[in-house]
Every structure is written in C-alpha cells, then in structure tokens.
Design a protein around this nucleic acid. Structure first.
Lengths: 278, 278
DNA sequence: CTTTTGCAGATTGTTGACAATCTACACCCG
DNA sequence: CGGGTGTAGATTGTCAACAATCTGCAAAAG
C-alpha cells in the first residue's frame, strides 16, 4: 500500500529534454521496483529541485562528454585533432577516469576515433562517408516530409516559416554561420515534428557526423539563395498538406546539398585561412 | 587558444578490424589500411600477424563491451536486469575501470541505461518505442530494396535465396530460434548489399535495440509461413530488378512485422513457462 | 500497530599510482 | 652520409584504494 498521494514530480528523473545520450525511456513498466521518491513531507520548491535533478542525472563522465561534444561540434577541436587525456582532464578539472569514459561514449556516437595505445582523435569524415550520410538523410527527410505534411499544424508551419525567415535574413547579410545555425534548427525541428523519437536521435547522430565534414559547402557563390528557396518550397508543401510534394521537396533538397558538397570538394577550397567561428 | 591541439597527422592511421560480419554497430567504414607493420622487409607470417592485430586493436574495454553486447543480445542478460560492476569485472577477470568504460559505450549504443548512483540496467523497450523503430526500419528497408534491386547481382540473389531456404527449413521444424537467426542474417545481408556503410551501422543499431523487445512475436501460430512467403517475394522482386516492387515488398514486410508485434503485445502471451502475475 | 529515524552493508563515483606501450631523438656502425 | 638501434620521455592502459551515495533492516517514537 504505497501512498503515492505525494505529487510525484511529473517526470520522475527526466533530465534534459531531447538531449543526446539521455536514454531515459519513460514509462518503462519496471518489473523491479519504482523509486520510492524519498522527498520529505514538504512540497519541494521548484528551483532547487531542478538543480537537484541536474546533479542527480549528471555524472562527471556525462558532463565531460557533453562538453567535448560541444567543443568538437563548435570546431574548437577540429577533425583530426588529437585529444590528450591528461590535458583534457586537467582542463576540465577532473581526473582521467571520467575523460576516458566520455571518450568511449563519444566513439560510439561517431565523433571520435580510438586507437589503442595511440590516442583519441576527432573523426575525419571522408567524402564517400559524407555522401553515404547525405543519401541516408535524404531518405529519412522524405519520410519526415510525408509525416509532417500529414500532421499539418498551423502553429508548426508558422514556426517553420520563422526559421526560414531567419535563414533569409542571414543570407542577405552573407552571414554563413548564422545561416548554418538557422538551417540546422529548421531541419531539427522538422524531424522533431515527425513525432518519432527514434528517428530524431538517428537523424541527429547523422547530422552530427556530417558536421565533422569540412563545411565549405555553403561558402560558394549563390548557394545561400538557392538553399533558401528550397526551404521555402518545403514549408509550402507542408502547409498545403501535400505529403508527397513535401517528401519530394525534402529529398531533392538534401540531394542538392549533396551535390553542392561534391562540387565544393572537387574544386579547390578557397578560404584556407583559419576561420575561427566568431 | 587551446594548446592541447597538437599538429594533427595529416593522414591518421586507420583503426584496424574492419568488417568482420558481426552485428556490432561500431566500426568505421575506413579504407582497409592496416597499421604500418614495424617488421622490416620480411613478409609477415599470416597467423601471428592476425593475433597481433587482434591484440593491438582490442583493448580491455572493447572486449568487455563486445562480451556484454553478446550476453545481452543472446538473452543471458534479460531486459531490466541490473548489471553489477564488481560482479561483471570479477566474472570477466578485469577490474572495474574497463567495465565502466564498456557501460558508457553500451549506453550510447542503446543497449543499457545508466542511472547515476543507482546502477546500470539492460534497457527495456516500450511498445511505443518498438513501434517507432519498426517505422524507421520500414523506411530504410524500402530504400534498401530499391538499391539492391538496382544492383541485381545473380550471386547475391542466390545467397539471399539460400537464407530464405534456411528460414523455410526452420519454419517447417517450428524452430523459432533458428528462424530468428536466419531472418536476422537475411536482412543484415540485404542491407549490406545496399552498399551504404552508414546505413548498415544505423540499421544494425536499430535492430539491436529491437531485439531487446520481448520476442514473442514469432511464436504465434501461422506467423512463420507468412513471414517466409514475404521474404520469398522480396527476393523475387530483387531478382526481377523491380526496384519499386522490392521497396514495396520490404516496406510492407516490416510493417506487417510491426502489426504482428502489436497483436502479440495486445494479446496475453502464451508462454510455456509459468509467468508470475500479481 | 504504524511511521520515522538511524545505522551497517553494499554499490557506485572518483582519484592517484603503477605498468605497458609508443614516439622521438641521439648514437653507433657500416 | 645513411640506416638501424637503443634509450628517455611522454602517453595510454589498468588497477586498487578511498569517498560518496544508496538500500535495507532494525530499533525507537508516536
């Protein structure tokens, strides 16, 4: 007779909404025993509770993993860079154990490569692999388009349009970084709207790996306007609840990006200067 | 800024151990470049070289990870089971460090769930999540069908037919385990034939997670013959180089499996063993 | 009799130390 | 002068000990 009168926190242990690595599968019919919620009689205050939950779910290795992932995706640790255990541990103020555990996780997520007795390196994506990823993305995005167009939520459409507007604004300024960010968010939100959590994590994994590829694609002349136009078309098809059209538009958009990548990688890279992101 | 960046080697040495048809998700479709053997001009003997390469690329954490993955997928460690660090370390003859590293990797690959200060548990897949995975698989497999049918290699078709034959044989004997194994190998090979390494790792990851779902699906009456028929149709469409037909057949096959799962999970499980209910 | 509270054992988190391996460079020999 | 060789330093792999946290039980309080 457990008295669960206590308003147990809505999410038992949930931390970090769609964040990576948090595989907290909600609603697992626990055959073992659900946690007895040790909270005392007093109703927990919201703010400290959040902090507590943060502390509870975030171990040192998880923190290190997140930080390293951020550094890699931000370009602070460029592809091919060697990650030194001791140095990183010192930098992050922990010992080597947690760093090593983070390395294992990052390898499985495809961001680094481990070589026994040699070290850990940020992965370098070959053109062929990037090509494979683009192909996969095209397939997944086509499915996404079909699904999202079927849902056809006016609010969602409005939100997507705002993302496209941000892209347009960045494009007129030739702000490649801003464009890239808006672009990523647009597609991420789109996949999220498809309502398949596993699809979302799969998609994010692929996009993360793709970000390791050298990003000279968008720097070409005339690419930004073209890409923007494609995005507008995608939203239009969704707004019209045209599933097949949205699927086709998304598929072609990704395949066009793939082509642009090939063009860019065939031609010599123009800006060889270290483009520090901001 | 960060001085832990050493001048990265232009061409990083590829990690060894490619391919190796196991269902392991890891593995980077790297060019088959082996480590520059330190032995001088003499041609290395095959047998010792293999052993050396094995030792070189397999660290203790990797070994532990593989073994745990095997145990989980084989059902020795059923979903929901708690994995005790010290016990497993003792069992495998290593210390807790490598075991912890393996845990991190297994979490990222979706096979276990980590709870800080609580322990590590084999993941349990909820019906909704299995549903999501089936949907994804259907999309991927449709793509696979289109691609493989386009390649249309007689040898490949023969090989696929042999897998189907093994399924048929197992079906007539009502050998569910044998059927499951042949089924897995058929689909794995099929995806491999699509020639997209990233697709293959993605697919394997999904299938691995799906195997954590309770596998009562195939035990139903009449499922095995139906499933076998679907497989034969798939190969037929591929042999006929009918891309769209193969895509449709595969998509429908996966969606039918999904339906069968729903049927099985809705109806009470008719298990031979006594199930404790309370 | 029920609920709370406080140990005691067990388990996980983290760390620092030691062993194994690799890399680089100076050295020796032809 | 070129090429192999050996050693020193750095880096990674592994381990065992210590600290923090959780779980379960038992005793005390109401």
């Amino acid at each position: 007779m457990l008295k669960l009168l206590k308003p147990a926190p809505a999410t038992p242990r949930a931390a970090g909404g769609t964040g990576r690595g948090s595989h907290s599968v909600r609603g697992e019919a626990a055959p073992t025993r659900t946690r007895p919620a040790r909270v005392p009689a007093v109703a927990p205050l919201a703010a400290p509770a959040a902090g507590i939950a943060l502390l509870q779910s975030n171990s040192l290795p998880a923190l290190v993993q997140r930080e390293l992932e951020r550094m890699i995706l931000a370009g602070d640790l460029p592809p091919g860079a060697k990650l030194n255990e001791a140095t990183l541990a010192d930098l992050l103020g922990v010992s080597r154990g947690p760093v090593r555990e983070a390395f294992r996780a990052l390898e499985e997520s495809g961001l680094v490569r481990l070589e026994k007795n040699r070290g850990v390196y940020v992965r370098q994506i070959a053109v062929e692999e990037a090509d494979n990823i683009y192909e996969l993305r095209a397939v997944l995005d086509a499915f996404v388009g079909r699904r999202v167009a079927a849902s056809a939520d006016p609010d969602a459409v409005r939100e997507l349009r705002s993302h496209v507007a941000r892209m347009e604004k960045a494009a007129t300024r030739n702000d490649v970084d801003g464009y890239l960010k808006a672009n990523l968010e647009f597609h991420d939100r789109l996949v999220e709207l498809a309502g398949n959590a596993k699809l979302l994590t799969t998609y994010r994994r692929l996009v993360n790996e793709l970000r390791l590829f050298r990003r000279t694609t968008l720097a070409q002349n005339g690419v930004l306007p073209t890409s923007t136009r494609e995005h507008r078309q995608i939203v239009d098809r969704i707004a019209a609840a045209d599933g097949e059209g949205a699927a086709r538009a998304l598929h072609e958009h990704v395949m066009a990006s793939r082509e642009r990548m090939h063009k860019a990688s065939a031609a010599p890279v123009r800006d060889t200067t270290t483009r520090k992101s901001r």
